[in-house]
Simulated assay, not measured.
Amino acid sequence: MTEQIHRWLDAVYLACIWISGMAILLMSLIIPWGIFARYVLGAGSSWPEPLAVLLMVIFTFFGAAATYRAGGHIAVEMLTNMLPTQARYLCEKLVDLLMIAICLFVMIWGGKLSMEMMRQGLAELPWLAVGVTYLPLPIGSFLTLLFVLENTFFGSQKDRAVVTYDHESSQPLNEAL
């Protein structure tokens, strides 16, 4: 059962990395177009800036989830490393509880904000509801919560290789971090 959980969370982790990577790639294409349209064509487009902001929010929240699982988040360990083992363990569990609380807070209130704003359109992109632009908050927080719970119950995954599987044979294809 534990292996299945890790396999499923490996897939979620890789999806977070791909979504974040695609968001930053698209953003790096959209911003130059906005600059080109304004300064070369002399007619600024209204859509590049709000779309780039949306992509940055997607990059931030999905990237934060992946970074948490990879152990790349900001962690000031100077003080906790000087503590005895039992006190260090208690600090780690306190951090886990605080992370769970923060994830739940952002999931709940970000979800409410997103649902409230679904009736409002974005001026620059009338086809896009403002609530959609807030969806990365609860979704990214939910994904982070999954990784926090994994860390809480199974320990840190930062040193474990992520294994991708062939869907037909369920055999490992490769191992990568």
Score class of each variant (00 low, 15 high):
residue 79 L to T: 10
residue 16 C to V: 02
residue 115 M to L: 14
residue 93 K to S: 08
residue 131 G to I: 07
residue 62 F to Y: 07
residue 131 G to Y: 06
residue 51 L to H: 02
residue 103 C to A: 03
residue 70 A to R: 06
residue 47 W to C: 13
residue 88 R to V: 05
residue 85 T to W: 11
residue 149 L to T: 04
residue 106 V to G: 01
residue 78 M to D: 03
residue 2 T to Y: 09
residue 14 L to C: 13
residue 131 G to M: 08
residue 5 I to M: 07
residue 5 I to A: 01
residue 137 L to D: 01
residue 133 T to P: 00
residue 150 E to A: 00
residue 132 V to Y: 14
residue 124 E to W: 01
residue 153 F to D: 06
residue 5 I to V: 15
residue 51 L to G: 13
residue 6 H to Y: 05
residue 17 I to A: 05
residue 94 L to A: 14
residue 48 P to I: 14
residue 23 A to R: 01
residue 1 M to E: 09
residue 174 N to S: 14
residue 138 P to V: 00
residue 122 L to E: 08
residue 172 P to K: 07
residue 62 F to D: 00
residue 49 E to I: 00
residue 129 A to C: 08
residue 72 G to S: 01
residue 81 N to M: 11
residue 24 I to T: 13
residue 129 A to K: 10
residue 168 E to F: 15
residue 146 L to P: 10
residue 111 G to I: 00
residue 56 M to S: 13
residue 78 M to C: 06
residue 114 S to V: 06
residue 147 F to Y: 03
residue 55 L to M: 09
residue 84 P to I: 04
residue 164 T to E: 11
residue 154 F to W: 12
residue 6 H to T: 04
residue 99 M to N: 13
residue 53 V to H: 03
residue 100 I to F: 05
residue 38 R to M: 11
residue 135 L to Y: 14
residue 44 G to H: 04
residue 161 A to S: 12
residue 8 W to A: 08
residue 156 S to H: 05
residue 151 N to G: 01
residue 76 V to F: 08
residue 28 S to M: 10
residue 119 R to C: 01
residue 48 P to T: 08
residue 44 G to Y: 06
residue 112 K to Q: 13
residue 84 P to M: 02
residue 94 L to M: 11
residue 96 D to M: 11
residue 80 T to C: 01
residue 98 L to G: 09
residue 169 S to E: 05
residue 47 W to K: 08
residue 35 I to L: 15
residue 109 W to F: 15
residue 88 R to N: 12
residue 137 L to W: 11
residue 52 A to M: 09
residue 144 T to I: 03
residue 14 L to I: 15
residue 62 F to L: 04
residue 135 L to R: 14
residue 47 W to P: 05
residue 136 P to T: 04
residue 59 F to Y: 13
residue 172 P to T: 09
residue 22 M to C: 09
residue 42 G to V: 13
residue 148 V to H: 01
